Amino acid sequence: MYKISEFAGITGLSKETLRYYAEVKLLEPAYVDPKNHYRYYDDGSYFLAIMLVKLREFGLTIQEMQKVMKDESFFNLEGLLLEKRKNLEDQVITLQKKMTEIDDFIESGRETSE
């Protein structure tokens, strides 16, 4: 079992994030000491925490992560990640178009000033 500070250190999640995740029932401690209310996490919690870190990196919202965590079989995870990937592709295309527009605008300014 890991105290919250130890668990934060090995997962890369802050203590505040871990408390918030427990509050929203995303990642609850394996054990809470009834006397001092210290939170303890186990190896199973580690797997879930690392998965949550990756899901956040992939841009999932808290609500989307809750949906994934409720579906313990992770049946819908692939579809959700493919949807996120498609959204990222769309954003890349949009940004590339904007960059081209900026380049064209700069070039047209150079041509008029010559």
Results as ranks from 00 to 15, higher is better:
M1A: 02
Y2L: 06
K3W: 00
I4P: 05
I4Q: 08
S5Q: 11
S5V: 09
E6K: 13
F7Y: 01
F7D: 04
A8T: 08
A8Q: 06
A8N: 00
I10F: 03
T11G: 07
G12M: 01
G12A: 01
L13Q: 04
L13E: 02
S14V: 02
S14R: 03
S14A: 08
E16R: 15
E16N: 12
T17D: 01
L18G: 03
Y20F: 15
Y20N: 10
Y20W: 13
Y21G: 00
Y21W: 11
Y21M: 05
Y21C: 02
Y21S: 02
Y21P: 00
E23Q: 15
E23A: 11
V24G: 01
V24Q: 07
K25Q: 13
L27A: 05
E28K: 13
E28M: 14
E28F: 03
E28Q: 14
A30M: 08
Y31Q: 08
Y31M: 10
V32A: 07
V32R: 15
D33H: 11
D33Y: 10
D33V: 09
K35G: 09
N36P: 04
N36A: 02
N36Q: 08
H37W: 10
H37Q: 14
H37Y: 11
H37K: 15
Y38M: 05
Y38R: 07
R39G: 04
Y40W: 12
Y40E: 03
Y41V: 04
D42N: 15
G44H: 11
S45P: 00
S45T: 03
Y46R: 14
Y46W: 07
F47W: 08
F47E: 13
L48E: 09
A49Q: 00
L52A: 01
V53N: 09
V53Q: 09
V53M: 10
K54A: 08
K54I: 11
K54T: 09
L55K: 02
R56K: 15
F58W: 09
F58L: 15
G59K: 07
G59D: 04
L60N: 04
L60T: 04
L60Q: 03
T61S: 15
I62L: 15
E64H: 07
M65H: 06
Q66K: 15
Q66M: 06
Q66W: 06
K67E: 14
V68A: 07
V68N: 03
V68P: 05
V68Q: 01
M69C: 08
M69L: 13
K70L: 12
E72T: 11
S73W: 04
F74N: 00
F75A: 13
F75D: 12
N76C: 08
E78V: 06
G79T: 07
L80G: 05
L80Q: 05
L81V: 00
L81W: 06
E83Y: 13
E83H: 12
K86S: 11
K86V: 06
N87E: 13
L88M: 14
E89L: 12
I93L: 12
I93W: 04
L95G: 02
Q96D: 15
Q96F: 05
K97F: 09
K98M: 13
M99C: 09
M99P: 02
T100K: 13
E101R: 13
E101S: 11
I102C: 07
D103S: 14
D104W: 04
F105W: 11
S108H: 12
G109R: 12
R110G: 03
R110T: 05
R110D: 00
E111M: 10
E111R: 14
E111S: 14
E111K: 15
T112Y: 09
S113K: 11
S113D: 08
S113Y: 12
S113L: 15
E114P: 01
